[in-house]
Design a binder for these strands. Structure first.
Lengths: 185, 185
DNA sequence: TTGCTTGTTGAACGATCGTACAACAACTGC
DNA sequence: GCAGTTGTTGTACGATCGTTCAACAAGCAA
C-alpha cells in the first residue's frame, strides 16, 4: 500500500503536524477520499505506518548484526553502531518517531503498539547481551540500561547534532557496555 | 503571565495537538484575542512556555540536590532519583516535552532553545560528576553518557510505565554511575 | 453489448484552526 | 466630568482540517 509509504515520507519531512489527509494523498498521488476508503480514518493509517516504520528499523538493525563478525561482542557493537548511523539516526526518523509518540499519548492504540515495540527492542538487546556473558539475573536491568542509553544518545544525536558525533555516541555506548560486561565477574 | 501557565497545562493535558489558541484562552479564562495581543503568535507563546517549564524542571532538580546530604555522591544520586519521580517523571511533562520537540523539528527558535537547555543540563551533570572524582578528560563523555541514560530511562518510564518502576530506573542509573566512577582509578 | 463489481475521484460539509480588528470597560491625570 | 491611555473582548475572515458521498472509469462475466 503506497499510502503507508507516503504517510511515512510526510511524517519524516513535516512531522506529526503536517500529516494531514490531503498532504498524504498528494504525496501518494491519489485523491484525499482514498485515505478514508482504505482506512477507518487518518489515525488508522498512521497506526499502520507505525508498524511499517518499526519493521524497517528492525530490519536495518538485524542486517547490521547479521553483517557483523560472528563474535557475540562484535554483534552487540554492530547493533549499537547501527543505531547511530543512517537510516536509524536521522532527523527524519526522529520526526517520524516523535509523531508516533505524540499520538501514543493521546490514543491507546498507538500506545499499545509502542509497548510491544519497546518490549521487542529490549528482548533483542537482551539476547545480544546474554551471548556476551551477561548472566540471567542481570539481563533484565542490563537490557533496560543499554536500551535507555542508546535511546537517549540517539535522541540527542538527532535533536542536537552539534553536541556530539555519531562516533562519540558509539564510543560512549561501547564503554558503558564494557562496564556492564566486566562487572559480571 | 497566566497565559504561559495555561499553555503549559494544556500541553500537559492534551499534548501538542490540543494546544490551540482557543483551548489555551479558555484554560486561562480569557478571550482568544488576548493571545495574539501579547504574543507575536501561538508559536511565540509556546516558545515562552518552553522557557517556563524548563525553569521549573531545573528548579525541581536543584531543590532535590540541595536537599541531599552534602557528600558528592549523595548529591548526584539525588539528581537522578529526582529525575524519575514527580514532577519530572510524569506523563504530563512528557507530553509537554514532546510538544516542544515537535516544534523544535519544524522551527529554528525552539531548536536553539533546546540546544541551550541540553547544554545546561549536561554541564549541571558534569559538575556533579566532577565532584565525585571523575577526572576532567573523561568528564565530557561521562556527562553525555549519564544524560543520555537518564533521558532514555525517563522517556520509557513515562511512555511505558508498566515496563519498569521508578525504583528500578534509579537503581539502573546508580549502577551505571558506579561503573563510571570506579573506572577512574 | 449489457450488467455488475471494484477502484478511484473530487466536490461538498461542518468543525476548527490562527489572526485581525472594531468595540467596549477600567483606570489615570487633569 | 472628561479626554486619554491601557487592557480586554468577541466577532469575523480565510484557510485547512477529517470525513462523506454521488459520480465516474475500468475490467470482466454473461
Amino acid at each position: 500500500m503506497s499510502l503507508i509509504a507516503a504517510c511515512a515520507r510526510v511524517l519524516a519531512r513535516e512531522g506529526a503536524a503536517g500529516a494531514s489527509v490531503r498532504t498524504i494523498a498528494v504525496e501518494a498521488g491519489v485523491s484525499p477520499g482514498l485515505v478514508s476508503h482504505y482506512f477507518a480514518g487518518v489515525e488508522a493509517l498512521i497506526e499502520a505506518t507505525y508498524g511499517h516504520v518499526e519493521a524497517q528499523v528492525g530490519a536495518a538493525l538485524d542486517a547490521a548484526v547479521a553483517a557483523a563478525a560472528p563474535e557475540p561482542r562484535a554483534r552487540l557493537d554492530a547493533f549499537v553502531t547501527a543505531s547511530f548511523a543512517p537510516p536509524i539516526a536521522t532527523p527524519e526518523l526522529l520526526a517520524t518517531w516523535i509523531g508516533f509518540w505524540t499520538l501514543a499519548i493521546a490514543r491507546g492504540g498507538i500506545a499499545r503498539q509502542h509497548d510491544s515495540h519497546y518490549a521487542a527492542y529490549r528482548s533483542r538487546l537482551e539476547a545480544l547481551l546474554a551471548a556476551c556473558g551477561v548472566p540471567g539475573p542481570s539481563l533484565r536491568h542490563a537490557g533496560i540500561a543499554i536500551a535507555a542509553l542508546v535511546d537517549g544518545l540517539w535522541l540527542e544525536l538527532c535533536l542536537s547534532p552539534q553536541a556530539f558525533s555519531a562516533d562519540e555516541a558509539g564510543a560512549i555506548a561501547r564503554a558503558q557496555i564494557d562496564g556492564l560486561i566486566v562487572r559480571q565477574f
